[in-house]
Simulated assay, not measured.
Amino acid sequence: MRPAVSVVIPTYNRNELLTRAIESVLSQEFDDFEVLVIDGARSNSTRELVRSYGDGRIRYIPQQGKGIANARNVGVLKARGKFIAFLDDDDHWRENKLERQLELFKELPKEYGLIYTAFTYYYLERNKILGIKHPRASGNVYRYMLKDNITGTSTIMVKRECFKKAGLFRESFPTCEDWDMWLRMSKICLFGAIDEPLVDYSIHSGQFSFAKYLAGRYRMIEEHGDIKHDPRVLSYHLLQIGLLKVFGGDRSGAKDILEAFRLNPSMRGNLADVLGSFLDVRTKIYILKFLGRL
Score class of each variant (00 low, 15 high):
residue 23 E to I: 13
residue 242 G to V: 11
residue 271 L to V: 12
residue 3 P to Y: 02
residue 294 L to S: 07
residue 232 R to M: 07
residue 89 D to N: 03
residue 184 R to G: 01
residue 7 V to Y: 12
residue 258 L to D: 13
residue 225 G to I: 02
residue 197 P to D: 08
residue 68 I to R: 01
residue 186 S to A: 09
residue 36 L to D: 11
residue 5 V to E: 08
residue 132 I to V: 15
residue 243 L to W: 01
residue 152 G to W: 02
residue 114 L to P: 00
residue 28 Q to F: 03
residue 248 G to Q: 01
residue 286 Y to R: 05
residue 59 R to I: 13
residue 116 Y to L: 04
residue 267 M to V: 03
residue 275 L to K: 10
residue 249 G to A: 09
residue 234 L to T: 01
residue 222 E to L: 07
residue 19 T to A: 07
residue 54 G to Y: 06
residue 127 N to L: 04
residue 254 A to I: 05
residue 23 E to G: 10
residue 251 R to F: 12
residue 287 I to K: 07
residue 150 I to C: 00
residue 134 H to D: 14
residue 151 T to F: 15
residue 140 N to D: 15
residue 131 G to A: 04
residue 158 V to I: 15
residue 161 E to L: 11
residue 224 H to D: 09
residue 213 Y to I: 10
residue 143 R to E: 13
residue 49 L to N: 13
residue 22 I to V: 15
residue 120 T to F: 07
residue 188 I to K: 08
residue 214 L to Y: 11
residue 264 N to W: 01
residue 234 L to S: 02
residue 188 I to T: 09
residue 143 R to Y: 08
residue 51 R to E: 05
residue 199 V to L: 00
residue 66 K to N: 05
residue 53 Y to R: 12
residue 164 K to F: 02
residue 138 S to R: 11
residue 175 T to W: 12
residue 168 L to N: 09
residue 30 F to Y: 15
residue 99 E to T: 14
residue 26 L to S: 11
residue 272 A to R: 06
residue 290 F to N: 12
residue 189 C to V: 08
residue 237 H to M: 02
residue 248 G to D: 11
residue 85 A to K: 06
